[in-house]
């Protein structure tokens, strides 16, 4: 391996096109003036770094200004980085080495040797197959008996919790500040987020109440009676991935989910009309009490929120 190979001009446009030599390298052979110039630049980069580090300390004492700190830290680090890379590229002579990759794969003889080394133990274990199986069984059982309770106590059993909400017959509809809502508070086109009284913030119960022109409502299964005077209430949990369905397109009477843009037809029982939501928003049957307040007539018409394996076993 004695052939020399010359490379193209180095990428950083350095003064000396480095000559890569295979095999051992003698003394560095860069022209002295090139080395001197490189050393000056490296010194300059390190000086910048030191000044920036001092500046960082000062800025730390004076206050907490992120732009100044960021730039100073970048300079302090960048100076060192420049110095290291220039040092490598200018002051060390590049050396290209070609050598054998070495000892793997090991080859047939070594493989046989390994097999021979493993064999006595394997045979000794194989003489007691029943004990070997028992050992495996004991380890497995111990693992399970330790692991199962740990896994099991990571979280509560789902039970019925995904099916239940805090709505009950007669519950007052209140807004996020616990103020009861009157039917007369809602004008046509207006919309409000509501919770059952006493459960503000309850995720599964959050609902959205809107008023639309009563003649336009066309709810399925004769549920028009559950939306008195055109005041209709739906679960606010998107049936796709559970985001709050918070956008109301008044012109089209559509509720829209801001996460994945499923759209629900308010007039037609919140049937999904676009996007990935597979089911309508469950409706909350409501009535207007004698004082004009909105109250729930019961729970949602279906389990609210996104789908899951055993959702069908809900109410």
């Amino acid at each position: 391996m004695s052939d020399e190979q010359h490379e193209g001009p180095s990428g950083d446009g350095g003064p000396a096109g480095p000559t890569s030599v295979e095999g051992p390298v003698g003394e560095p052979s860069l022209p002295p003036e090139v080395e001197r110039r490189a050393a000056r630049w490296i010194g300059f980069a390190l000086a910048v770094s030191m000044l920036a580090a001092i500046g960082l300390f000062v800025s730390y004492v004076l206050g907490n200004q992120v732009q100044v700190q960021g730039v100073l830290l970048a300079l302090a680090l960048g100076g060192i980085a420049m110095a290291l890379i220039m040092w490598a590229k200018k002051l060390f002579v590049p050396e290209v080495v070609t050598e054998e990759r070495g000892d793997h794969p090991a080859g047939e003889r070594e493989l046989e040797a390994v097999a021979a080394a493993a064999a006595p133990g394997g045979e000794a274990i194989a003489r007691r197959p029943f004990l070997a199986r028992m050992l495996g069984g004991a380890a497995g059982l111990l693992g399970l008996s330790v692991l199962l309770p740990v896994v099991r106590s990571l979280g509560p059993s789902p039970g019925r919790s995904l099916f239940t909400t805090d709505w009950s017959r007669g519950a007052l509809l209140v807004d996020e500040f616990s103020r009861p809502l009157k039917a007369s508070d809602l004008e046509i086109g207006s919309v409000a987020t509501v919770f059952p009284q006493g459960f503000v913030g309850s995720e599964s119960s959050m609902a959205i109440v809107l008023r639309v022109p009563q003649g336009l409502l066309n709810l399925p299964d004769g549920r028009d009676a559950d939306a008195p005077d055109g005041v209709v209430c739906y679960s606010k949990l998107c049936t796709h991935a559970g985001c709050p369905v918070g956008l109301y397109e008044k012109l089209y009477y559509q509720l829209q989910c801001p996460c994945h843009f499923s759209a629900f037809d308010v007039l037609n029982g919140a049937e999904p009309v676009f996007g990935p939501a597979p089911r309508p928003l469950p409706q909350l049957p409501i009535e207007i009490d004698d004082a004009g307040y909105l109250r729930a007539k019961g729970g949602f018409t279906a389990t609210p929120g996104p789908g899951f394996w055993n959702r069908g076993s809900g109410p």
């Binding site: 290291l84 040092w87 060390f92």
Partner: peptide
Amino acid sequence: GLIRGERAWPRYAFKATGLFVAVFAV
């Protein structure tokens, strides 16, 4: 069966450390 490159020490080590500090700086 062959490998070609430069030795870890010193040029490559300086360049690699320099790259680390440069990434941090950026």
